[in-house]
Amino acid sequence: MAFDLDLALAAPYDPASASGYREHPERMGFFTDTSVCIGCKACEVACKEWNAIPDHPLGFTGMSYDNTGGLGASTWRHVAFIEQPGRTAGADGAEFRWLMASDVCKHCTHAACLDVCPTGSLFRTEFGTVVVQEDICNGCGYCVPACPYGVIARREEDGRVWKCTMCYDRLGVGQEPACAKSCPTDSIQFGELTELRTRAERRLEQLHEAGVGSAQLYGHDPGDGVGGTGAFFLLLDEPEVYGLPPDPVVTTRDLPAMWRQVALAATALLAAVAVTALGARS
């Protein structure tokens, strides 16, 4: 089984095919271009309305205009606000910046949450997305620490875990996700992943040409630690500034090694007992 695993975790590959869909639509995804985000949070609200997510007011956080804090069981789209000093316009170089970025589940090519789920509640859809099945999840919570992006979370009142489904129900009937649909400036672009990747590259080039040297793509690279993400981003600063891990790795990449170590340790334990037994006999 272990070699099977190695194979499955190797990039590049098509997650839907690998998950047993013989015929399936193109892999769908999000390209969130944070350079045109106006921080309106329509995406947060549209998502909540569509999915009837309970509100959970945190109160005033003082984190600029962000009062939802981060992704969680009741916030599947989250808009980050980062104020970067550099006083008043005019002076070249260090201009004040107010970065805004809408974060979401990455729908990883190699999704740790999905890999570790013991019930099959988390599954890969025919669109290549990663979805929790609320009728299956037993709330073991394993997926939560497994996600390297801190996306999926358990809703305590409910006992189950929740996260973005990339509007699986809507995709099924040919509609775009609620968040992308509402986004006033098209900061959230939904579509076929391959096409989005080309679009993103073009956009990055433009920004670089225009002198926005800090612009960078995040999650678009199929060679990264999670095999590239289904929802990727154009950021204007380092990922950690937005609360994103700079170089996440799907934990199950190391799982074969872990199993090997476990096998070694288990054998050692067996041996140790045997040794003690033999020792005791002698």
């Binding site: 099977d4 690998a18 998950s19 047993g20 509640s121 859809t125 099945q133």
Partner: peptide, 16 residues
């Protein structure tokens, strides 16, 4: 089925 690892088609629930 083809979903040997139980991460996709094989585990799709009725509701889904």
């Amino acid at each position: 089925g083809p979903d040997r690892l139980g991460r996709g088609a094989a585990v799709k629930s009725r509701r889904s």
